[in-house]
Amino acid sequence: MPLAAFTWTEFAQQIAAGVREGAIYAGLALAIVIIYRSTRVINFAQGEMATFTTFIAWSLMNRGLSFWVAFPIVLAIAFAGGVTIERVLIRPVENAPVLTIVIITLGLALLLNGLMSIIWGGANRQFRGPFSTRTIDVGGVPISVQDIGIVVVSIALVALLALFFRFTKLGLALRAAAVNPDSSRLAGVRVGWMLALGWGIAAVLGAVAGMMIAPVVFLDPNMMQTILLYAFAAAVLGGLDSPAGAVVGGILLGVTITLLGRYVGFIGSTLKLPVALLLILILLLIRPGGLFGRVAVRRV
């Protein structure tokens, strides 16, 4: 593909698009990190869970609800769904090897994916988002309102979450249960419920990411699959243990691959994902804990 002439305006637009992509990855990556921190499990169903809730939003809006009315309802459903999944599917195998739990989440991903095809069909659907797609001029660079909206919502969500974890008793208990379940029990924390709560929060984050990205791409059962991979990559990039890392990793990844895809002809759109993974692999070899993660020193 021959490259069009380079202009700074376009470069800035690409960066903006990358940040928007990255904000979505960051949201999903954060969901992955929250579950990982508390249960040491990677939830491979995270993408499917997000798409499922987005479909629910679509159905509600199809019945005439406006986006901002459907939004909180969907978040509540997502939360309840996440908690239920943890209680029913993950709890019984809490002490099983990691692989068992990974496989259960893979099974859940397949199950949800099939259910979506059955309930809503496999066709692409247009999802009307809350933001207009018209562009406005930001310091000489045309950027769409939608992109700005997505980034603002993501930042707001991350900020809310940070406040919750830092300043509320429940947030503190969640963190405590993640780092030291035994001592948390002795302090009176119901650790089992904290894990379920973690899944609930992760499901909410996923739902928001789904509802933000659906207007940009199209809504179909496989919508989140590639995005989930980028989110994994973002989480690994930032360090699976670090929520802040997930956010930074997401944005960094979004911008990097957008620029690489646009300006490096050889990579184009087909090799974006392999190249992103290669970069992360190299990073992991240099810093095994990711950018922000700490490599735990274990006692044996």
Partner: peptide, 9 residues
């Protein structure tokens, strides 16, 4: 934060 957790109950 440790002290806050002590008062969790």
């Amino acid at each position: 934060e440790n002290l806050r957790l002590g008062a969790y109950t």
